[in-house]
Design a protein around this nucleic acid. Sequence first.
DNA 1: ACGGTAATGCAAACCACTTGCATTTCTAAT
DNA 2: ATTAGAAATGCAAGTGGTTTGCATTACCGT
Lengths: 145, 145
Amino acid sequence: MNTQALSKTYRPLLEKAALKTTKPRLLVLDTLTKSKIPLTAQEIHSQLSKSKIDQATVYRNLQSLTDAKIIRLVNFQHDHNHYEVANNHHHHAICESCGKVVDISKCDLSQLEKNVKSISGFSTINQHSLEFFGLCTKCAKKSAQ
Amino acid sequence: MNTQALSKTYRPLLEKAALKTTKPRLLVLDTLTKSKIPLTAQEIHSQLSKSKIDQATVYRNLQSLTDAKIIRLVNFQHDHNHYEVANNHHHHAICESCGKVVDISKCDLSQLEKNVKSISGFSTINQHSLEFFGLCTKCAKKSAQ
DNA sequence: ACGGTAATGCAAACCACTTGCATTTCTAAT
DNA sequence: ATTAGAAATGCAAGTGGTTTGCATTACCGT
């Protein structure tokens, strides 16, 4: 997809956040949008190697897009931060052996959030992060051997 | 508390994991045990500055203790890894403004975990990570001004 | 088209974390 | 107790992901 098409798609979103519609920003955002799993800065950068986007630019865009809540930081038990587009809230099951990631779409923590508010005294809970760690079928078989 | 007392306290736990009962290891483990909130490697190291424990040793012990499941990696939306002792499973509410951490002890995700298994196809779920992000009372007031 | 501002690219700097290696400390078996 | 082997430590150097400074470029409202 060329830059013009991307621009058409994402400009409204970026405008709302007062972010300029630049080619590198469009590419970063589009990469995350198309990905089925959360990505690290480096993964994004290497996927965009043909486009000659600078590493620093990728990092800066991940920051600005996160600030704008267009994308979101996901907590994997990993050193490197992973990002995903912020709409379409869901969680993940992560294989501790091979790193496979499966989306878990069901999420009803409304009751739990109420408890959290009363326990913590926090007036607002803006977001939560919930990830499950275990073994995928393949790795479970392997480790059984 | 001196090393001998610490040794008495933690030796059984370490023995079970086939880890040697060394002074640096005892100090790292004790620091985490005494802390009300999860700590980073650097926080632990600076708390132990009097004891002249090397940074590398702190990192290596966090690794070995995590492998042994005596401590656990906690996912804050932060770059640096935080650790807590693994028993006494609970979650956290984290203020996005000041970083305040409140323990949330209530946690019943058993039903959710069943769903996760069936959706993901994972045969085993070993652990999960659940954190809430919002504003503590103080910061909510400040931002209201 | 133009001017101001945000964003980019490049290179250098930073800093958390890791690694290699010689030395020390455990621990279990003698 | 002694000792031998393995694990752990300290130190220093290395690594690599992320950030920053700065000059240049691209965006966008006027």
